[in-house]
């Protein structure tokens, strides 16, 4: 059996990985909470963001953390445009059509990236990529710690945005009561697009936080999508705090069950939690009553 020190370290590792999961889930939960759609293109958009960070680094030597300042607004605009001019009009507001359109988008993005960047698995080399922070006997990866801090910061910023700004309030109004919001004079199509843009912006930050310690290839985003769904469900669809706490929790569960059951079977732990939560408390741990 493992010593408590190792289990403790596994928990820490899980928290650090889980934070980035949370950030990816944040985008998903936001879009779900407001638009009530399951965005199939989420993984492909994450891949696109990672390639954007990669390309900026390779072409202009932009540090991945600095590239947040460029990629985030870029992806906000991309998300806004996608929802406003592609997903919205093409799906006619019908759930199953939205699903198909986002599926079509994911095929398009993934293979577009394949055509541009080819299929190689690429990494970027930053001087701090191998840095560690020593805490007693523990060696904590510096890029992953930054990932943890960055994710929590983004979640807090997003939450502040939602409660403090007029746009944030409008988003919440649309999420709660679409018809009522329309009657209040809120431009629902605009709010939808803003929300989708915010979801993509979260992905851009996540991509920048991932790149110093991860790799990118045209299919890499898929690895994160299922786990992000789990987190969204666990945290309650549409809940920002839920996504953050759910992400950290799932990261921990994955890490510890991976340690105890093996990485492969450990994945079952996640899905069993997922199924149990859905069956027993489908609104999630933090979700509002349906």
């Amino acid at each position: 059996m493992y010593s408590p020190a190792i289990i403790f370290e596994a928990v820490l590792n899980g928290l650090m990985t889980g934070a980035v999961y949370a950030l990816i889930a944040l985008g998903l939960t936001l879009v779900y909470g407001v638009l009530h759609i399951i965005n199939f293109a989420h993984g492909a958009l994450l891949t696109a963001a990672m390639f954007a960070v990669f390309a900026l680094h390779v072409a202009f030597r932009v540090d991945p953390y600095v590239s947040i300042l460029i990629v985030t607004p870029l992806f906000f605009a991309l998300g806004y445009g996608l929802q406003r001019f592609v997903i919205g009009p093409a799906s006619h507001g019908d759930d199953q059509n939205i699903l198909l359109v986002t599926l079509g988008l994911s095929i398009l993005i993934e293979n577009g990236l394949l055509a541009i960047f080819r299929s190689d698995t690429r990494t970027i080399d930053v001087p701090y990529g191998f840095n560690v922070v020593e805490v007693g006997p523990l060696l904590l990866s510096q890029p992953k710690l930054i990932g943890l801090a960055g994710s929590v910061a983004v979640a807090i910023l997003l939450w502040l945005f939602m409660v403090r700004t007029d746009t944030g309030k409008a988003i919440r109004a649309v999420a709660k009561e679409r018809l009522g919001a329309t009657l209040m004079g809120i431009d629902v199509a605009h709010i939808y697009a803003i929300t989708f843009g915010l979801g993509c912006a979260c992905l851009a930050v996540a991509a920048a936080l991932l790149m110093p310690s991860f790799y990118v290839n045209p299919r890499v985003g898929n690895a994160f999508v299922l786990v992000a769904f789990t987190i969204v469900v666990l945290g309650g669809m549409g809940s920002i705090a839920g996504a953050l706490i759910g992400g950290l929790f799932i990261g921990m569960v994955e890490s510890v069950s991976g340690l105890l059951l093996g990485e492969s079977l450990g994945q079952i732990g996640i899905f069993l939690i997922f199924i149990l939560v859905l069956l027993l408390r489908p609104t999630g741990l933090f979700g509002a009553k349906a």
Partner: peptide, 16 residues
Amino acid sequence: GIDLVVYGIVLILVVA
């Protein structure tokens, strides 16, 4: 990948 890009576009158009 180009063929699947076209496939994705046509899928969206069909839905539209």
